[in-house]
Amino acid sequence: MIKVSVLYPNSDSATFDMDYYLNTHLPLVAELVGEALLSGHADKGLAGGAPGEAPAYIAMGHLTFDSVESFQQSFGPHQGAILADLANFTNTHPTVQISEIKQ
């Protein structure tokens, strides 16, 4: 099983509409990729590791799939629509990481 993490970097000028992300963007992604998506959730950055330190990421989204191939096949045809929606909730440029889930 793999996890696709979308990391939205924090900065003084970063904006992120968590309500839109949770109620519009993630449901859009789920609808477009269909049954290939096993689960998804979001994290809101609160703080860094040191007292008073800002979080490195303003938000993170995590999606799980059976495999990299499953993700690529389901996401690829809809990449344009999904990426176009970013401007509706953030002004950041996210980093994507695909990880193998170990238990």
Rank of each mutant, 00 (worst) to 15 (best):
M1S: 06
I2L: 06
V4M: 12
V4C: 07
V6M: 08
L7A: 05
S11Y: 08
D12G: 05
D12T: 00
A14R: 13
A14K: 06
A14T: 08
T15N: 13
D17E: 05
D19H: 15
D19W: 04
Y20L: 08
L22E: 09
N23M: 02
T24R: 12
L28W: 07
V29Y: 02
V29H: 06
V29R: 06
A30G: 09
A30S: 07
A30D: 03
E31W: 05
L32K: 10
V33Y: 00
V33F: 07
G34L: 06
G34H: 03
E35I: 02
E35S: 12
A36Y: 00
A36H: 02
L37A: 02
L38I: 13
S39K: 09
S39V: 00
G40C: 14
G40R: 13
G40L: 11
A42M: 12
A42Q: 05
D43L: 15
D43T: 15
K44S: 10
L46M: 13
G48Y: 08
A50M: 14
P51N: 12
G52Q: 09
G52V: 01
E53Q: 12
A54Q: 13
A54L: 05
P55T: 11
Y57V: 00
A59V: 11
M60R: 15
M60I: 15
M60P: 15
G61F: 02
H62E: 04
L63G: 14
L63C: 15
L63S: 14
T64F: 05
T64D: 14
F65E: 07
D66T: 09
S67G: 03
V68T: 02
V68A: 10
V68I: 04
S70Y: 01
F71S: 00
Q73H: 11
Q73N: 10
Q73P: 02
F75I: 08
F75Q: 08
G76L: 01
G76S: 04
G76F: 00
P77R: 00
P77V: 00
H78Y: 05
Q79I: 11
G80Q: 11
A81R: 12
A81E: 04
A81F: 07
I82H: 01
L83M: 13
A84E: 04
D85H: 11
L86V: 01
A87K: 14
N88K: 14
F89P: 09
F89N: 06
F89E: 11
N91S: 03
H93L: 12
P94S: 01
T95D: 14
V96I: 11
V96P: 08
V96W: 13
I98Y: 07
S99E: 13
S99L: 08
I101N: 07
K102Q: 10
